[in-house]
Write a protein that binds this DNA or RNA. Sequence first.
DNA 1: GCCAACGTTGGC
DNA 2: GCCAACGTTGGC
Length: 661
Amino acid sequence: MSEGLVDNLGSGRGPGEEDMEINGEVLKPTNDLLIEKEERTEVGDNGMERTSQVLSPLEALAPSDSLDIQDHATSVPVMTGHGQTEKIPGGVAEEQPVDWFEPLEDDNYEDDTQGDAEEESVAGSERSGSVKRVTVEEGWEDWPALGKGWKRKAVVRRSGSSVGQSDVYYMSPSNERVRSRVELSKVLADTLDMTMFDYKAGVFRGVGQPKPLQSSLKDRGDRADSPDSNHRLTPLSRSSMGTPSKDLQHTTPPRPNSSLAKISSPSVAHDVEGMKQNATKLPLSPASSVSVSINGMWIPCGNCRACLTTEDCGSCANCKKTLNPDTKKLVRCRKRKCLCPILKNSTPQYSDPEDFSVNVDIEDDDEEKRKRRSCGICEACNSRTDCGTCDFCIDKPKFGGSNKKRQKCRLRQCQRQAMRHLLPFQLGQTDFGSQEGWVQLGRPRPHFTYSRKTTPKKRKTPHLEVDMEFTDDEDEPLQEEEDYRYMETVSTAMWRWHNRERQPIITFQFQTTGRTSGIDQEHELLKLLKSLHSSALPTLWFAIMVEGPTLQLLQCSKLSHMVDTTVQIDPSFYYQICVQGQPLLLTHPLYEAHPSCLTSVPQVANLLLDLEKYNVCQGVPTKEQPFSQAPIIIERASTCDFLVLKETEHCARCKALSCSY
DNA sequence: GCCAACGTTGGC
DNA sequence: GCCAACGTTGGC
């Protein structure tokens, strides 16, 4: 704070003080001209201690759309309309006229801590000069600066390493959420020139329009926030205000009763960080607890018996939870949980309303958290390239998506740690094949999957399925769950295979459950693989070794009808034909026409040649409802042959099913 | 129980 | 400042 200003503070503008005239412009004593600022505590003439806020010159230039007084503390403008400081009487609050304190009508002044506790939502804690109209829900404010129907919300991060940081979101009239300037520019590209738009403050940095003082003052503040703000300050104003400080650069306009404004201040941000760091030093003192009172949180009152208890009981569930090394989350002893906590405007999304202790999740080991998400070892974790084709990629803005799913590319989901429904369909899509010739069982599957009517239980035993349906809808998770289960099995087998020196016995679990094979069988299987590689197989059929171990034959040509068909030979040389991931029924003529074991290249080649004579049964569409917009559902008979000779489209069973419609 | 939606936070 | 994406929530 400049010396000059400090000097000015003493002069004290008293009640009824005349309007200021600065460079011919009259400053009305309205809160529009007031700027929340540094707090001061002084002893008044009556001996009463009073808290006030004074404005620093630099801060007067700080971006502020509101330029409102905070609480009922007093602030005074000190800038002239041309950036010059002025000796201003009345720098200290002292029973100002009511019109200086317009917001006092809904006076919620308390001490600083209590004030925080009852402040309005952080969301929407900034505003333009227009009348604020906070929507009832979710803290969205109407934001006419962007046009009719636009809304804006500012949210302060409640936890994590970036606690206290604020994020600003906008919502278009069509409820399209915008998270960044880039997104906003895209949305408004055709309607507004966003080059001068201050995203964070939500205002256009317009120039050249004649404005009343308070507008020009406001604009000066706005400009101070812009990247080139410094050179816009007149030398006089800069010299009279001292060296520009970071205050000049803060991007969040203060506003009345704004916890955001408080959190944005270095001291309070420090408090928030300190709270996180010191959370283990429970109990929080009343002062410390309120210093981090962020909107929408349960906070301890600081005064009740529980709050005043300083030692953990050591025996309650929470104490035990804290002691449990597997439970990293720090929670307060139940006997020290506030008996009368203060609920702020809204409950934070992730807070536990039962847990008044900290309200900021304390993961004392972020590394642990990361490990839960990714092993960091698998190919998927180390992949940096999005496939651009999976549903999660397609959702991404960079691929033209609407950013609704916001998930990592499926091929980059950790093989071990990711949530099941996020896992890639198959191991091989993560390029496991690049290592030691290993690839996945099967191949990337077509997009249609089984409908919800097919329960996981049924799918476990596909041969026994009844009423199995086949659709082209997007029901991936069920299929993925099956894939996951299967993957767990093959992953284990794969590990054993890689460690076969120590784990000579491999149990192969698949359709031929129960059969075991020793190292000799595996060796024989590898010999067959080598033979197949050195032989001419039917066009574009290729043999690979996959987890199990299993020798898998697949058709590499997408033009072939057998593109979704594989032959899997286990170490005992029994084989299984799979179509789109589903095992062919053992009653299929193909099995009858070939030996039960494929032990030689000719046997394999013959089977593949035979396979090329087949098509995949197309299934039958369910009966369409007239004028229905619903997608057409393709069904298959429960005993569908899957593979039908090329001259036919449907197997007999599916054809019979179609006749029933 | 599943999953779309999205609030939120980490990282660059 | 912006994007990526984790993990919760609420609708179904």
